[in-house]
Simulated scan of single mutants.
Amino acid sequence: MLLIATMAPVGSARAADSLGVFDGWAAFRDARAGRCYAIAEPERGTAGGQARAYASVGTWPERGARSQLFVRLSRPQADKSRVYLSIGERRFALVAGPGRAWAQDARMDAAIVSAMRSAETMSIEGTGGNGRPFYDLYVLKGAATAIDAAALACPAR
């Protein structure tokens, strides 16, 4: 959990306000950036990951964005390779950029968050730049509460 607390600013050196820690997930409000988010690190993954992986579900009221998934991968994926998110029996093909991935649209975001609420784990899978498969496994205990805390902290305007 200490690692989650140190990741809180997600790409920024600014301080974010902690909204709470809920098992393996935490929620934060970053008033300066106008966003709130739930975040977790993977429970385990492919050994030798090059980046500090995390999954987050964020809300940006001023942009009209609610419950958007963003994943930083543990390693850069191979060019033109697909990145998949699996939750229970559901499998989602994500949009991928260098070392990161996200849902294709708001409908997929909603389906992902809904699936997260009723599953125990989710995994991110892809092919690394070295041609080897990689995966990151996230335990979802506490995810729904963290997502709700973030959404309540950044209400729609």
Score class of each variant (00 low, 15 high):
P9T: 01
G11K: 04
G11M: 04
A15K: 01
A15N: 03
D17A: 14
D17E: 15
G20R: 07
V21Q: 10
V21S: 07
F22I: 11
D23I: 08
G24W: 02
W25R: 00
A26H: 00
A26L: 03
A27I: 02
A27M: 03
D30T: 11
A31N: 09
A31I: 04
A31Y: 03
R32E: 12
A33N: 01
A33P: 02
G34T: 15
G34L: 13
R35I: 11
R35T: 12
A38V: 11
A38E: 12
I39Y: 08
I39W: 08
I39F: 09
E41V: 15
E41H: 13
E41Q: 14
P42F: 00
E43P: 02
E43S: 07
R44E: 14
T46C: 07
G48K: 01
G48H: 03
G49A: 13
A51C: 04
A55F: 06
V57Y: 00
G58E: 13
P61G: 04
P61F: 01
A65G: 00
A65Q: 02
L69F: 10
F70N: 06
V71A: 03
R72Q: 14
R72P: 01
R72M: 14
L73D: 05
L73Y: 05
S74L: 14
Q77K: 04
A78L: 13
Y84V: 06
S86E: 10
S86F: 00
S86M: 03
I87E: 05
I87V: 14
E89D: 12
R90M: 09
R91G: 03
L94P: 02
V95G: 09
P98F: 03
R100M: 08
R100N: 05
A103D: 06
Q104M: 10
D105V: 07
D105R: 00
A106V: 05
A106P: 08
R107E: 15
M108A: 10
M108T: 12
A110V: 02
A110R: 11
V113A: 07
V113G: 10
V113N: 06
M116H: 12
S118R: 14
E120I: 03
E125Y: 04
G126R: 10
G126F: 02
G126H: 10
T127C: 05
R132L: 07
Y135I: 03
D136I: 04
L137N: 11
Y138E: 00
V139H: 04
L140T: 11
K141V: 06
A143Q: 12
A143G: 00
T145S: 08
A146P: 01
I147D: 10
D148Y: 05
D148N: 14
A149Y: 07
A149P: 13
A149R: 14
A150S: 15
